[in-house]
Each structure stands twice: as C-alpha cells, then as structure tokens.
Design a protein around this nucleic acid. Structure first.
Lengths: 248, 248
DNA sequence: CGTAACTTTGATTAGTATCAAAAATGGTGG
DNA sequence: CCACCATTTTTGATACTAATCAAAGTTACG
C-alpha cells in the first residue's frame, strides 16, 4: 500500500497536459510552465487512498495509468461511488482551491500518478489564464458528469442505469485511447458497479446477465464488449453530450 | 412568461458580488471591474426557463431574488432536479466556458435575475485572477453539492433523503439571509421535492407526514420549521461540510 | 494447491411505485 | 367578496422492482 518512489526523469506529465490542451489550447509558455512544476511520480497498489474525506491534501494528483474512483459514505457505512477516473484525469483539482476534501479517492487498480504541490498548481493557475481556463473547464466537465449521475441514480431503472454507466465508460476509455470498437477490460468489480449505480451487487449481476442474454454485451471474465452500440445506447438512455468530449 | 425589463439603475449586483467575496476576497479593482460589467436586470415569472438543454446561452445568469432549479430529463420524460438555487447564486457560470448547456434551469418562483454577457464574464475571469478564483470556487462548491446529491439519491432511504434535503435548504437559506432558527418557506411543491430526491410525490407526502408526526418538523401550509435541528440532522444523515459555507 | 475475492443462483421480503380519487389550497374573474 | 377552477396535498389499495439472506460456483493469486 505504500507508494513506490521513482526517479524524477520518469515523471510523465504527457497524458495530463494532453488532456488540458484538448480542453483549451495552451501557449508554449503555458505548457513549459506546467511542465516545470516540481512533479513527483508514484505508483500505488490497488485500493490505496489518494484522497481522504476530511483531510487537506498537500498535492494535486493526476492519473498517468490505471484507474481510480471517488466515493462518499453514508453514516450507516453505505458507499456511493460518484466518479471513475482514468489516464489523463486529475482526481482532485478542486483541492488547489478548497481546503478539506469532502470525499475519498481510492485506486481501483495499480496506478501511476503524478503529484503536484497544491500551492504551486494554484499559483500557476492564478498567473496563467490559459492554464486556469483549461483546468476550470476540466472541473466543469466533472461537474456535468456528476449531474448526469444524479439523474442516472435518481430516475433510471436498474438495467438502464447499468447500461448507461457501461456506455459512459466505453466512450471515455475510447477517448483516453484505452479501448476501441466498444470493447474494454472493465476496471470494476460488480460490487463497485453496484456502488456506482446505487444498486446491490446481486442485482448488478442479474442485470449484466440480462444484458448479456439479450445480446447487448458480451462478457469474458472481466472483459466486456458492447455488441451493438446503438441498441445499447438506447437501452442505457445514453447520449454522450454531457461528457463534452468534442472540443467545444 | 416573458421577461420584464427594468431600468439599468435598478441593476442589483450586490447579492452576487457579496457571495463571490465571501468565497475569495476581491481587490477594489476586481470589484469595480465586476460592477462595471454591462449587466441587465430582468424579472421572470415562475416556471420560466433561464437555461435550456442543448442551447448556448448568451448570458451568465445570477439570481438576485426568488428561486430556481436545475433539472435533466430521461428519454422517458422523468425529471430529476439536480440543484436548487437562491439569491446570490449564479445558475450557469459554467456556460462562460462550455458551449452547450446539458440541462435546464427554470425559475421556481418569481425571480429577479441579473444577466451578464457570457463573453464579458469570460474575459473578465481571464484578465483578473481574483475574479477567476472566486468564480472557480463557486463552481467547485456546486460540484461538491452534486456529489452529495449522488450519495443522497443513490444510498439513502426515502426519509433520510428528504430530511437531508430539508437540512441543506435550511442551512443555505440561512446563509443567504432568508431564514433563521431553521424556519423557512419551502419554495418547492412536493412533486418538486420528489424530483429532487428521486422519489414520487405520493411518497414524499407520506415521508413529510411521518417527519411531522415524529416531531422533527412542523408545517403550516408551505412554511416549514425544523423543530429539533440535531435530531433532524441525525435523521437526514446531514453534515453540512460539503457546502463549504465557512470560509476555507 | 490452497485460499480469499468475486460471481452466480435461488427464495423471500421490504420499500417505493403505481393507480385512483378525495380533500384542501390558492389564485382569478365576475 | 364570493364562486370557480387549477393546482397541490392527502389518503387508500395494490403491484412490482430491487433488497436481503443464504449458499454454491468460479476465478485469480500467493
């Protein structure tokens, strides 16, 4: 569980700056300034906490490889996953401006992350409007995804909910270059899918079986293929506009 | 339903700049720059659309009085309210940087709003780090509230969900100077409460009755008093930290 | 090869939804 | 000021989705 240090020259800001540039073009100076942040790279084993509810993190964390999820707990201990993150995602950009985390972030798989000092990120954003804009847009898109999840969990039935989540993952993975033709290795257990959709793992299992039987998906172990995207998108009431993936 | 024009000198940016300053102190120049934006004031009747899903608004909209709510619809037409807004809230700050709205915003009551040209707001934020910071924090707090709503709708039972929402409203209203000692006029119908919590209006009615019977709240018409805050917060599994109301 | 984590299946229950309709409320025009 | 109408709230009866409980398979890993 303890982070594994790596030499500074290994620092891989590529996926992170790539995503920022996609959201809003950066000038050469912006890019250089970002790249000269005192970044550290770490590798975390599955289940490691990157952010803890109530704590003030010293760093802003960017995912270079692997997956992570953000979750909150009720007083009774029930868990709700509120987002899933992958290569290129900052998992806690908010924490450069808000003091205390109001949620947890844990790695889902082994993950390489880049740690940037919180205050250095904040100062960079305050000095460089181009960087601030890209980062702000990044957090705005996160926000849009949260809204869609409120809708998903609040107003869709179990099958639609699961199908919607699988569609979202497919599109985001594709955009991150991690899957093609809607075929990917699902980074989550059925229990985690349940926690992301407000269901139980038993029910998720039955829904997956049903999606499988009706030919919408095919599963082999943890690998998943969406057999017919159009029918699946319809089953999941899915329209990816909220992901704001195409350059606005 | 059509907006009602008012003379420019009526423009009331007070509640809006007040909120921004609370989130992050502004310099005198920042404040002046914000106040000299070409703002227009309008009054909308209940049910008016301030933002329409899929459209690109020309303005950023700030609420000066009255209430509004943000919602999304499923393909089947079910509605999920994803946030409720009151005096001092910008309802669509995101739209200064994202092109298309992915949700609707409608007034809940008659509402006075300030309209600021989208591009002017964007340029102001890009030129003035102090303004950008306050606005960014504002959207980050919205984001935090969305996360809590995912948890609320995904993992809490009906009574807890409603109690949680009533607690959130009480605290935010208090902060906006619209209620004291947890007694306020509920701006939403039971059907709207249902759409905000992923329940049906029939069930909301039964839950309210039950909260009333057990002495946690008292209702007179649309007015609501939380009789015992501590017990209510416990019943609603409520901890207001996610609202980030105290200056961070 | 053994063990823990995860997936699958079955039986039963619980919590909310749905359907239907009556009562109360609030706003409007006569 | 009252009568009317639309909206909202309340109540009751029934249906259904997903939860719970329990246990057997399966997979992955050390």
């Amino acid at each position: 569980m303890s982070p594994h240090d790596q030499a500074p020259q290994d620092v891989a800001l590529g996926p992170l700056i790539g995503k920022l540039e996609r959201l809003s073009p950066l000038s050469a100076e912006d890019r250089d300034a970002f790249l000269s942040l005192p970044a550290k790279t770490r590798t975390f084993s599955p289940g490691s906490y990157l952010v803890r509810d109530g704590e003030q993190a010293e760093h802003v964390t960017g995912l270079v490889s692997g997956f992570a999820f953000r979750h909150k707990l009720t007083g009774e201990g029930a868990r709700q996953i509120v987002s899933v993150h992958m290569r290129g995602d900052f998992v806690d950009l908010h924490n450069s401006f808000l003091e205390c985390a109001d949620h947890n972030v844990q790695t889902l798989t082994e993950a390489r992350v880049v740690l940037l000092p919180r205050l250095a990120v904040r100062d960079l954003a305050l000095q460089r409007p181009g960087i601030a804009k890209a980062m702000w847009i990044d957090t705005l898109i996160d926000s849009s995804i949260f809204r869609e999840w409120v809708l998903n969990v609040g107003r869709r039935d179990s099958l639609t909910r699961i199908a919607h989540l699988l569609c979202e993952l497919s599109l985001r993975l594709q955009f991150a270059g991690l899957c093609e033709s809607h075929r990917y290795r699902l980074p989550m257990t059925q229990e985690q899918l349940a926690d992301a959709t407000g269901l139980t793992s038993v029910h998720v299992n039955r829904v997956l079986k049903s999606l499988d039987r009706s030919g919408l998906i095919r599963r082999e172990g943890r690998s998943l293929a969406i057999e017919n995207w159009d029918r699946m998108a319809e089953a999941g009431d899915f329209n990816g506009r909220y992901l704001h993936l195409q350059a606005d």
